[in-house]
Design a protein around this nucleic acid. Structure first.
Lengths: 339, 339
DNA sequence: GTTGCCTTTGGGAACGCTCCCACCTCCAGG
DNA sequence: CCTGGAGGTGGGAGCGTTCCCAAAGGCAAC
């Protein structure tokens, strides 16, 4: 089986062993149309006999496709790796790409070497680009598209982007959370929001507002406090909220980490959860299971997001329309004991 | 700058524009030896003028090198991504590979599709393989080497592996921790160990034993308890330890998560840290800064590990000796308030 | 002025594959 | 019996590089 690693067998050798022409052998490996059963079988036997593996370079040279997709992760985001959400997205991408028989070229984009990045991102090397990044100025997607390469962005940099992205439906998710708090009979529903320059920050507030409006509740500016998605900032925001409005009895937090901080601050303030105050998070991160009490939260699936990014990219590549509309991933509420 | 994405310029076109032959243009781009300044300059101008990017496939076809390296992560390890240590290793690998102008092909090895994995891991696709995995049976490295591909494993599957790996020097690190506890005047030094089937489990016990022996302390079997690297198991082990030997006053934990569990159990048992008991962890994970009190721990650098893996792989590729000796990464003690 | 070496150059060949066209065979229909 | 189309096949051309060899040019030594 493991033949001399000297030089790998070529298609020509396979064809010779099978007693057919090179063209026929190629047909068996690819399309497979118009080949007699006898020839097909002979070629297949020769392939296993020789342990033949097609040479990707030769194939790419003639087809002008590499069957490789780049995943670019803005390195400035130290977090990206190590954060369960992004880890999940990467795994989803990996699985979807493997299923489509595509290679995943990982690029940890050092902000310093932006130049060589754009140099690399051409048809010469990959068939498409997946981009993972939270904010960033990011004219990058458009610059890459300028080279004629399809791009799909995971998460949006700005809410007005309409094409070539996959994002969680933050507005819908936040609405779910607020509706749940209303249903629990909460009267003074606050939110601990994220940074306004991130879509996950702004649009979850938007969903909070929409949710309250839908329930015919007034919007009280004093009940909206900003954090930076860290646990510490969540605790700080909660303390601020208690000070501004002691009667607060429901809190929607823009992510689970801030919710964990809020729970901590509430405990320290002597409020019982969920008896006195209901808390809902967003993300359904692993931590949501281990807070005290376990956190009710809006579930989003990173794995699905990765898969959807790949699906959209493959579609863009197939239609050669660089501007397919973006996709919103639905969320659902996971009710635990904090509400 | 962004020319018609119709077809990218070829070397031939660059040469024509520069008014030289294809050979000369190629020489400018690569080795650069024996080219007149005039020709070099003309070619370089033509390259920027045309926005020329060499076609990797054509190059790979003739040189028989792909300049790509595969990073294989055994998917069975759900943890791998999302764990800060591995995230760091991946980032280190990414940086080192980028510096060496190599592409990183990420393979999340689904255990189901092992077959297609081996099919892919040949000279046809990559020049070398980086393998990240904790235990696993793993005859895989040797099978890949059988195809004539250099392999470097991060962490060892078994302690008797001598070549082609990069690992943290667990024995040395554990020794550091124990020496520190001895120095603090601790008399009854226990350890919470990891699973014996993982090198990080067994060799850290080995270092613990060596450390005690070096300090002329006896080994007491009752002071060795096993956990599974989880926080919960650390707490359990600590309770067990307190029961077996209430006089215990020093604990070396095989990782920080278990140390965090131990701290928690000690607090619940009313022991003060570090007054009554000193606790030392291993890893210097982010959590080590946020435990109460902050954890003294053995620092290991995932980033360096990734870099060293790449360095060893590149060396292996250069010498074509498939069996370069493995490398141990030194650790150092970070003293915080738990000891 | 001739010879010979060194530097620099151009371009043919080859890498391993897919695409495509010409061709061969067979069989149904006239 | 001839014709035409469908099914199946072989192999030439070409993808964009690098490698290498032959040759051109320049200059110093004879």
């Amino acid at each position: 089986m493991a033949r001399s690693p000297r030089t790998r067998p070529t298609l020509e050798e396979v064809a010779a062993l099978a007693g057919v022409g090179r063209g026929t052998a190629s047909r068996v490996i690819n399309g497979g149309a118009k080949v007699s059963d006898r020839a097909r079988q002979a070629v297949e036997e020769a392939i296993t006999e020789l342990g033949y593996v097609p040479n990707a370079a030769a194939r790419a040279l003639v087809t002008r496709r590499t069957d490789a997709v780049a995943l670019v992760i803005a390195e400035s985001e130290e977090r990206v790796f190590g954060e369960p959400f992004f880890a999940g997205v990467v795994r989803g991408i990996g699985a979807a790409l493997a299923a489509a028989d595509r290679q995943l070229v990982l690029i940890l984009a050092d902000s310093r070497r932006r130049g060589s990045l754009e140099h690399y991102l051409t048809r010469q090397h990959v068939d498409g680009v997946l981009l993972l990044s939270l904010h960033e100025d990011d004219t990058l997607p458009d610059r890459i598209r300028g080279h004629g390469l399809p791009v799909v962005v995971g998460g949006r940099s700005r809410p007005d982007v309409r094409t070539g992205f996959v994002d969680v439906d933050n507005v819908q998710g936040a609405g779910l959370a607020v509706a749940h708090l209303v249903e629990r009979g909460r009267q003074r529903i606050a939110t601990i929001a994220g940074p306004p320059d991130m879509v996950a920050g702004s649009s979850r507030v938007e969903g909070y507002v929409a949710g309250l409006t839908a329930a015919d509740r007034p919007i009280d500016e004093r009940l909206v406090v900003r954090g930076d998605f860290s646990q510490e900032s969540g605790a700080r925001a909660m303390r601020e909220l208690l000070e501004r409005e002691p009667a607060v009895d429901g809190v929607f937090c823009a992510n689970d980490l801030m919710a964990a901080g809020a729970l901590q601050a509430l405990r320290e303030a002597g409020r019982r959860v969920p008896e006195d105050v209901s808390v809902v998070g967003f993300e359904d991160a692993p931590i949501a299971r281990s807070t005290v009490p376990p956190l009710t939260t809006v579930h989003q699936s990173p794995w699905a997001m990765g898969g959807e990014m790949v699906a959209l990219l493959l579609e863009t590549m197939a239609t050669s329309d660089p501007d397919l509309p973006g996709r919103m991933l639905p969320t659902r509420l996971v009710v635990r004991q904090s509400s």
